[in-house]
Design a binder for these strands. Structure first.
Length: 309
DNA sequence: CCAAAGTTTCCTGCTT
DNA sequence: GAAGCAGGAAACTTTG
């Protein structure tokens, strides 16, 4: 059995997520993935690349931002590099989600241990924040690992302009966050992450994939379930549905054929292939995103977005 | 309240 | 015979 590097991470839910705990390695993995454990190192400057990704995913999950709208590969950096990014860098790297991410990391840098949940932001009533960000889609038991809610953005947000004369006031950041979230949350997204995105994220995160799914043909997007029941349990945990089975999960997968998110792979059990409407799984997507367009202070390229199909 | 999207659940029949 | 696949049908949850 492969032991995930997150064995040391503890979660109050790890021992209770499944009545039988039939997949301890999965449970361990889950403790970091969907139980929303914040990276334990309170100083973001000390985060590993993986912790940066974890932070990224959690900020987007919590604020119900469509994960596919932010190129994770633009954040292929450790915490030190992340903390060096300016407000404009975040805009370039994450587009409309940039203000939210910038605010989150700014809070973490200053507070050392808290993270931002937009539902707790003290926004002016006249801003007409119609979306309910306090309504997170995770069990309340998960929330206590986050620590206290964050104070208002204004006193601590202190963006670093990328160039002289580039002013970023807390007011404009707050406006950006408002606009960003208005755009993001309007997208119809019934229950958070989609199944195919969940599968894709497992495949793209080998560090956290303890032999659940593997690529059969990386270039063609062909993959195979190694532990179908474990993946189903994981998906069920994600959706707060303990009765999820591979049979049900596979039915949902088959619905993707019609939408060309998946293509049929005949004659091979547990094998699927990403279709033309699946985004963000190609290696070429990632390498293209990293190619520098112009000289910047940091080694990563900002500004490109994942292609829409 | 309604419609739509995206599953979830159940089912029958077929294949490996 | 078990496990998986295929797809119809209905129900369900969430969002706009």
């Amino acid at each position: 059995m492969s032991i995930s590097p997150f064995t040391t991470l503890e979660s109050p839910l790890t021992s209770s997520w499944s009545p039988t705990n039939s997949y301890p390695d999965v449970a361990t993995w889950m403790s970091g993935y969907s139980n929303r454990l914040w990276p334990r190192d309170p100083k973001p400057q000390l985060w590993s690349k993986f912790q940066v990704w974890e932070w990224l995913q959690q900020v987007m999950d919590i604020n119900q931002i469509d994960a596919s709208s932010v190129p994770f590969q633009n954040f292929d950096m450790d915490g030190h590099q992340l903390c060096g990014l300016s407000y404009q860098d975040f805009i370039h790297a994450a587009g409309s989600a940039g203000p939210v991410l910038f605010h989150s990391i700014t809070e973490l840098k200053w507070s050392g241990q808290c993270h931002v949940e937009l539902g707790h932001l003290e926004l002016k009533p006249e801003l007409d924040f119609s979306c309910s960000f306090s309504e997170v889609s995770y069990p309340p038991a998960d929330l206590d690992v986050y620590g206290p809610s964050i104070p208002p953005i204004a006193p601590v947000a202190s963006p670093t302009p990328s160039s002289p004369g580039e002013e970023c006031t807390s007011y404009t950041i707050q406006q950006d966050i408002k606009r960003s979230l208005s755009r993001q949350v309007k997208k119809h997204n019934p229950r958070g992450i989609h199944l195919w995105e969940f599968i894709r994220d497992i495949l793209l995160n080998p560090e956290r994939n303890p032999g659940l799914i593997k690529w059969e043909d990386r270039a063609e997007g062909v993959f195979r379930f190694l532990k179908s029941d474990a993946v189903a349990q994981l998906w069920g945990k994600k959706k707060n549905n303990i009765s999820m089975t591979y049979e049900k999960l596979s039915r949902a997968m088959r619905y993707y054929y019609k939408r060309e998110i998946l293509e049929r792979v005949d004659g091979r059990r547990l094998v699927y292939k990403f279709g033309r409407n699946a985004r963000g799984w190609r290696e070429s997507d990632m390498t293209r995103k990293r190619a520098p367009r112009r000289r910047r202070r940091h080694i990563f390229q900002f500004g490109s977005r994942l292609e829409e199909p």
